[in-house]
Structure formats: C-alpha cells, structure tokens
Amino acid sequence: KAKLLVLLYAFVATDADTICIGYHANNSTDTVDTILEKNVAVTHSVNLLEDSHNGKLCKLKGIAPLQLGKCNITGWLLGNPECDSLLPARSWSYIVETPNSENGACYPGDLIDYEELREQLSSVSSLERFEIFPKESSWPNHTFNGVTVSCSHRGKSSFYRNLLWLTKKGDSYPKLTNSYVNNKGKEVLVLWGVHHPSSSDEQQSLYSNGNAYVSVASSNYNRRFTPEIAARPKVRDQHGRMNYYWTLLEPGDTIIFEATGNLIAPWYAFALSRGFESGIITSNASMHECNTKCQTPQGAINSNLPFQNIHPVTIGECPKYVRSTKLRMVTGLRNIPSIQYRGLFGAIAGFIEGGWTGMIDGWYGYHHQNEQGSGYAADQKSTQNAINGITNKVNSVIEKMNTQFTAVGKEFNNLEKRMENLNKKVDDGFLDIWTYNAELLVLLENERTLDFHDLNVKNLYEKVKSQLKNNAKEIGNGCFEFYHKCDNECMESVRNGTYDYPKYSEESKLNR
C-alpha cells in the first residue's frame, strides 16, 4: 500500500503543469573576455578590431598615390635624371617610397634638414613645378651647363633637372645676384646647392675665386655659405661634395641669391598645395585598381571598426592602431551559463540550468507544459528593451572611439638618435595607453552587458513569482510547478501579467 502511494505521488508530481523562465541559446562559437572571465561563450557579439588588409596600394578616395619607385624624396625633388618619370607629377593622395629606393642625390652630399622637408611634404597633396630662374636668361655671365658622370643618364654625363651647376664663363666668375618674388599665391619650395671641391685647383678651375661665398636671403631665411675645400674619400667617382638646401617662400615674399662661386642654382621650384589627408609611407606593396579610405604600408583597410592592429602608420580615415589581438564586445547572452554566478555589478545569474535553442524569437521568455502540450514563448517587451539598450551602447562606444585619422611616422637624422629613441618611447607609451583603454573598455562593457542580461532574466522570474504567489511552488531551476490546472489561456495570463490569483487560489489551497 505504501509503495502504491509513492508511485501515485510521483505520477501526480510529474503530471503537474509547469512554467519556466529562460533565455535564448544557439550554436554560436563566439567568445568574449570580461573583467572576471576569459573566453566566455556568448550567443552574439561584435568585433571592434580590424585585423585584415588587402595587401595592395590603392587610390585614396579615388585619387591615385605618387609612387616614387626607384627614387626617394631627395632624388625626386632635386631632379635626379633617373627620376625623370616623376617630373610630370602634379597631385596625389599620398606618397609612396620603397624601403630600398636607390636614386637620391646622384652627386654625393646631403639634403640639409631632410627630415623636416619630409614632414612638410606629408601635408602636401599637389604642386606646380615651374621655372623659377629661366636657364637661358638668368645667368648671362656664367656657364650653366655643368654636368657630371655621377648623374649620368643613358650613358652620358648629366645633372639634376631642377638645378643648374653654374661655373665660370671664360676665365671669370663675376659676382651674381638674382631674385624671385613669389607671385603664386601659395608657398613655394625653393631648392639650391653649394659645391665643396676637393682641392684649391678644382676650386680655381671651376670658379676662378679662391674665397667664394654663397648667400641666400628671404624674410624668414638668411644664410651665408662658404665652400669647404678638403680631400675626401671618393664616392660615386667624386672627391667633391654638394650640400643641398631648401626653404619655403611665403606668398609675396622675395628670395635673393648672391654668389661669387660654388652656387648650384635653382632652375625649377614648386608651388605647394596642402592636403590634410596626405602623407608619406614606405612600402613594398604594389599598386592595383582599387579604392580605399584608409591606406597602410601593408595594404588598404576598408573598415568602419574603431581599432586596427595592422600597422601604426596610416593615411586617410583609419581606425586607431592598438596592439590588441582581440577586441570583441558582447551583444547577446551567455551561451554556457554559470550556476549560481554573481556578476561584478550585482546581477544574479545561473538559476537557469541552460539556455534554450528552441526559443528563437527572443532573448528571454517562457517554456510551459500542461495537458494541452508544451512550447516556448519569447517575452518580446523585455527582449526589445534589451536590444535597444545594447545597440545604443555599442553604437555609442564605437562612435566615441571611432575617431579616424592619419598617423604618419616621424623623421630623425643620424645625429638625432637620442631624440628618436625618446620619441619611440613616448609613442610606445601612448600606444600602451590606447591599447589598455580599449581593452579595459571592452572588458568592463562585456561584464556589464552579461550582468544586464542576467538581471533581465531574474526580473522576469520575479515578475512571475509575484503573480503566482503560493498558487505554485519554485522547483529550483527557474521553473514553477502549479498547484492547479493551468491551461493555455492561464499560461498566457502569466506571461502577459494578467494572471488571476484569486481564481485559482482555492484549487491551489486544496492541492498544497
């Protein structure tokens, strides 16, 4: 008799109507990190870190770059004969040098303040090359056809396309004075040089004057150069050297050249137009028929994500570079809930034993079982409120962090190594801060989002509990077992918050 009662009780308990509160689960393989956990499985997430590029040089917003090819900045601007293909260059979106560009200054020497000139050019998007001192009329008392084997072109001695090597005419090199007034309405880049012979005999042979000088002056520039005559090792078949100089001439300003020898005179100059998204990159990537809004030396990035880990040097509207390998923000729920887990921000989770793959029309909802059958029903209101809140948060985070910009490298010469090392340390410090901030932001927001979901499920549970009161009992896994019969209409009233407690209280009292 006792065995019969136990079996009867078990049958009745199993047959009781139930309603459970749960949440969506799926077959997603997404994982995120939080402050407290690593690799948390979630139903949905968004990636904030771009880690792919196309490996190509592309047009930037429809404008092609200027590819210097086998030449570098120095060779292009001075007019190395091997860089003749660059003479027609007028406009570009950015400038590309190759790491091993070999054609710079063909006659050995240095372009002074080269690093600063590169910085200036990094904001130039177009130029006009014009004859600042016409070759045939500007130097009537001097020979202007100086050439050298060091600047050979097609097997013949030649010289820079933008400079003139002035030497004596006959047996004399009379003092020369020439000036140019900038009437271009924009900055003009003027380049010139000073020749330093290897011996007094060479000085006399070329310029006749043993104590020659070169003077260059404008409103913002004033220097006097004296040739340094000295024996030097042979470089590119030359014992002599040429140093090259430049200045930016403001609109309306005048530049005056005065010399008694050794002047490498300007022939062509450049009127410059600035462009905020221009820059110089060093890259071996090849040019393709493609378009982008962000270019790196590795390749083009076409992404609206706020961060990238491809390269710190970028041109155009680019994500911020960070050292992170993963920045994924959760938008959905835990896919593998932890039992009795309390989140960092106070939300209680884990009283549900598992997510439901059968509930596909919402994030949170119900599963019921009664004599009429069983089924899932999503709670659309709480789901939609959660979707709206999380979507707004993700968009806000992306908008705040998605300050796209150009980031170019800084140039230092060989004598500025300590400054370069200090600059690298400062840049590394800023990069570490950006990386830390980005990672911390994602970790915190992921923790908040998961706790937010847990709290929403808990609130749904409490909503049902407050309606049923003692007409049902909690069975410990997020479910309630009714003390009365609850048909589909009754189940719907529980879900929509209109459950009639008094209607079922007498039946429940008897069954309790």
Rank of each mutant, 00 (worst) to 15 (best):
R129Q: 06
F130S: 01
A89E: 12
E102C: 00
D110L: 13
S157R: 07
E116Q: 07
Y94R: 09
A13H: 11
H239M: 14
S137L: 13
L117S: 01
W76C: 10
Y213C: 12
L68M: 10
R224E: 05
L77C: 01
H142R: 05
I63P: 00
W92E: 03
S137R: 09
D15P: 00
S125L: 15
T143P: 01
E202Y: 05
A64L: 09
F257M: 02
C71Q: 08
A25D: 00
S273L: 09
L5C: 07
K186M: 09
A259Q: 06
I255K: 00
Y114I: 15
S152C: 00
V190G: 00
V46W: 08
N182G: 04
G170N: 15
L87N: 03
S278N: 15
S273E: 09
W165F: 08
L4N: 08
A271L: 13
G155S: 13
T31M: 09
L68R: 14
T14Y: 05
E37P: 00
G252Q: 06
E119R: 10
D110F: 03
E277H: 13
S219K: 12
E277M: 02
S52R: 11
L189N: 06
R161S: 14
T247E: 07
E128M: 14
G22S: 15
N80K: 11
N72V: 01
Y9T: 09
E116K: 12
S179P: 01
L87V: 07
T226A: 12
S215M: 14
K1S: 12
E131G: 01
T226M: 10
S199Q: 07
K70M: 09
P99Y: 12
Y94P: 05
E250N: 09
H53E: 05
A41P: 15
C71F: 09
L121P: 01
E277Y: 14
W267I: 09
W76P: 01
L8N: 08
T247M: 14
L68C: 02
N222P: 00
S91N: 06
L176Q: 01
P227Q: 00
T177E: 11
F11I: 10
N220Q: 03
F11L: 14
S218N: 04
P65H: 11
S125K: 09
T177S: 14
G22Q: 04
K175Q: 12
S179H: 06
P88I: 14
G22I: 03
Y180R: 00
K3C: 14
E136V: 11
V190H: 05
L8M: 15
K175P: 12
S278M: 03
T18C: 00
E50L: 12
Y107C: 02
I63M: 12
L166Q: 01
R232W: 11
V46Q: 12
N183R: 07
S122F: 13
G261M: 06
A25H: 02
L191P: 04
Y245A: 10
V188N: 01
V181E: 07
V32G: 06
L248R: 09
I19W: 01
N262K: 04
F144C: 11
E187Q: 10
N72I: 00
P108H: 08
S93E: 08
G146V: 09
K135D: 12
G79V: 07
A230Q: 13
A230D: 00
D171L: 06
A269W: 09
Y173H: 07
L249Q: 03
V235P: 01
E202T: 13
G104A: 13
S45H: 14
L263I: 13
F130A: 07
L36S: 15
E258W: 03
V42G: 09
G62Y: 05
S93C: 10
C106Y: 10
N80H: 15
N72M: 13
S179Y: 08
R118E: 05
L127W: 15
E250M: 02
V124H: 02
P81L: 07
L60A: 02
N27I: 00
T148D: 01
D237M: 12
D171R: 01
A2W: 13
C58H: 04
F144I: 08
G261F: 00
A231V: 13
T43E: 07
R232P: 02
V147I: 15
G170Y: 11
E228S: 13
Y9D: 02
K234S: 13
K56N: 09
S138K: 08
F257H: 04
V32N: 00
D113T: 02
G279I: 07
L78P: 14
L248N: 02
K175A: 11
I63N: 14
S199L: 07
S123A: 14
H196P: 00
V188E: 02
L164C: 05
I63K: 13
T282D: 04
Y245F: 07
D84A: 07
L78N: 11
E102I: 15
T43R: 05
G75D: 08
Q203E: 13
S198A: 07
G79K: 04
G279Q: 07
L78R: 11
T226G: 01
I73C: 05
K3V: 12
K156V: 10
Q67S: 10
L66A: 01
E277R: 12
V149H: 08
W267P: 00
K184D: 00
N72Y: 02
G193W: 04
S205C: 11
I264G: 00
Y160T: 10
L87H: 07
L57A: 02
L57V: 03
Y244R: 10
T29M: 09
F276N: 11
V149Y: 11
L263N: 03
I19F: 04
I132S: 01
A41W: 11
L8Y: 14
G240F: 05
S218P: 02
S137K: 05
I281N: 06
S215K: 04
A231P: 12
D84P: 05
V12G: 10
F133T: 03
V194W: 10
P174R: 13
R161W: 06
K168R: 14
L166Y: 04
L66S: 07
E50I: 08
S45T: 07
Y268W: 14
I132R: 04
G240K: 07
R118F: 12
Y207Q: 02
S219W: 00
E228M: 01
I73D: 00
N162H: 13
P99N: 10
G279N: 13
T31N: 07
R232A: 09
S85V: 12
I19D: 10
F225C: 13
S126K: 14
T14P: 14
T282L: 15
Y94E: 02
G252M: 15
G55M: 15
A64Y: 07
Y268D: 02
N100P: 03
H142G: 00
I63L: 12
V124D: 00
A2I: 08
E128S: 13
H196K: 01
W139H: 09
V147R: 14
V6R: 14
K168G: 14
Y180K: 05
E82H: 06
K234A: 13
K234G: 01
P65R: 03
L164K: 07
S208H: 10
G155M: 12
T18I: 13
E228V: 11
K56M: 12
I63Y: 01
D30A: 07
S158I: 00
G109I: 03
K184V: 14
L117D: 09
S200K: 07
V188Y: 01
I21A: 09
V190Y: 06
F130T: 07
T282W: 01
D84H: 07
Q203N: 04
W165P: 06
S215Y: 04
T148N: 05
L57G: 02
R241D: 08
H44T: 02
T282G: 02
L166F: 00
L77A: 08
A217M: 09
N162F: 03
S85M: 07
H195F: 07
H142T: 15
G146S: 09
S273D: 09
S205D: 12
D15H: 13
A271E: 09
E97M: 07
Q67W: 11
A16F: 06
Q238D: 00
W76D: 05
V12W: 05
K38V: 03
T31V: 08
L8H: 00
Y213A: 10
G275H: 09
P65Y: 07
E128N: 11
S158Q: 14
W192G: 00
L49W: 07
G279E: 05
N72E: 12
P266E: 03
V194P: 03
H142M: 05
I112A: 15
M242W: 02
L121S: 03
L66E: 05
K70N: 10
N100Y: 07
C20S: 08
A265F: 02
C71R: 06
I63Q: 14
S137Y: 07
K186H: 06
K168L: 10
A41I: 01
S91I: 13
C83N: 09
A13M: 12
Y213E: 15
L117E: 02
L191S: 01
L78A: 10
L248Q: 05
L206G: 01
K186W: 00
P227Y: 09
E115L: 03
Y107T: 08
C106E: 02
